[in-house]
Amino acid sequence: MNISSHRRTRDRVVTVLTYAAMVFVLLLPFALFVGLAVKSDLLFREHSLGDLLFSSVWRPSSGEFGFKPFIVGSVYVTLLAMLISCPICLLSAIHITQYAPTRVAKVVTTAIDILAGIPSVVYGVWGMVGVVPFVGKIAGWCGIQSNGYSILAGGIVLSIMVVPFILNILMEIYRTIPRELTEVSLSLGATRWETIRDVLNRKALPGILAAFGFGFARAFGETMAVLMVVGNVVKIPEGLFDPGYPLPALIANSFGELGSIPEIESALMFAALILLVVVLIFNATLRWLIIKAERY
């Protein structure tokens, strides 16, 4: 075997290997989906999809599985977290990349990396001793009875947890915008703020959408910290100070029952399936928005 055929063989092997790895990665979400769907099948034999998604009665012992309280709880907590964190992240990313001196930007970047590395259970504990009593107090001032374990507490803790992730992406987005674009806008007589508002933000839009989407997906699936502060009461929350019970918390709290009653196991698989599908649909929608925004 001469050298060149040796090299050609190696080339081919590498091509096949990389291809196989790619196929494997592409199959993963599909495999996950199929696995969960198959395991949820038992539940579908006795309940319609409509019943499962829109009924509020959750009585596993008597075979009633209404997921609405969990779905609504998840949506509330996640939306609240996004509502708090997105504006904060956007404004601070703009300040750090456009106004702050290099040294300050470096310090902040380091701090954010540290925040991103903190385990979620730490945020949870901090939420229990810090955020929950605080929320309880606010409820008191508003004349509402609440021990603080609530949608609001969950939203606050969650919002703080996603800040480093969203902020990191946003800073990267603003940093990659060519400086010349700023120069051009300034030279046309725009102020710094007009430039940011009309030019940089427009240029950053696809990235901003991606960052928010990434944050949403993370927040929607975040389990531990939320579970510790949100109250975990199966009831559709009617206000910020009401407790809630998001989907990931349901799974985490009941996994001990896996393997005991088949129907409950199937219900938990279905809960996981809902999480997966929501995140997939959300990502697909976002892709589409990003592609639309990338025209410029």
Binding site: P178, E180, L181, E183, S187, G189, R202
Partner: peptide, 15 residues
């Protein structure tokens, strides 16, 4: 700055 137009090395159209 408004009195001075600027043309850079590569074109940078606004988005």
């Amino acid at each position: 700055r408004r009195k001075m137009g600027l043309l850079s090395q590569r074109p940078f159209p606004l988005p």
